[in-house]
Amino acid sequence: MTETKQHGETVQTESRSAIEIRNLSTYYGDFRALDDINLTVDPMTVTALIGPSGCGKSTLIRVLNRMNDYIDGFRVEGQVLVDGQDIYDKKVNVEQLRKRVGMVFQKPNPFPKSIFENVAYGLKIQGIKEKSFIEERVVKSLQQVVLWDEVKDNLKKNAFGLSGGQQQRLCIARTLAVEPSIVLMDEPTSALDPISTAKIEELVFELKSQYTFVIVTHNMQQAARISDKTAFFYMGNLIEVGDTQQIFTNPGVKRTEYYIRGQFG
């Protein structure tokens, strides 16, 4: 335990997929939310999950860091491999998994604490007490999301004083501070104005050389702009997945085309 902590991240020997989903079905009680999904996500890419409301894309993204564990009656069949490890295996430590697979939510949800404490939270709950280490990581994370210049004089101020776009970038910084390898984003810009949205998209584009992104979005242009791969879901089924370019210009399935063109959904 301590050894892996001290030596930091595990060495990746080969460029295998970051996430591999095999025959995944999920249930809320009797209701099947996802039906036999197979999907792989390559490291250092952006994968967009699109589809109409209730199609299962949010369920899928929350499966990837087991955020659905707290929902009574939620059940998973099949396998979800993250870095080759089945995350639904009994031996998996869920807290450790979530450090590797971070998540940014639909609405900015900073803690009712100072800007600094927000970013430091993920480190402090790991029991890290070294002040200089925490400070270093906080500064680095805020710089990564291009928020540092805006908040460097106000680190002690409550995070609620920030604008919506700044809050969302703070939430991304908070996620990056624990050094995940995968970042999940569940409609990260749906509550933001166009300028803030553009900033977040720019961020994702810049950060994808270091992180693997999976993004749920209702915004077709956004999916087209920032993702490498796009997966289209409908009624719990994965209808089509492929290179974003191809999905948007030459989809293989009619329903995908209709959805992308805005004819239903």
Binding site: M67, Q96, R98, G102, F105, K107, I125, C171
Partner: peptide, 26 residues
Amino acid sequence: PGSIKDASYALGATKWQTIWLQVLPG
């Protein structure tokens, strides 16, 4: 708000940490 708890869990907090550091102060 559930969103606060979600945020805590997503950063790797245990249930007890989330209750002690977020829910009870809130």
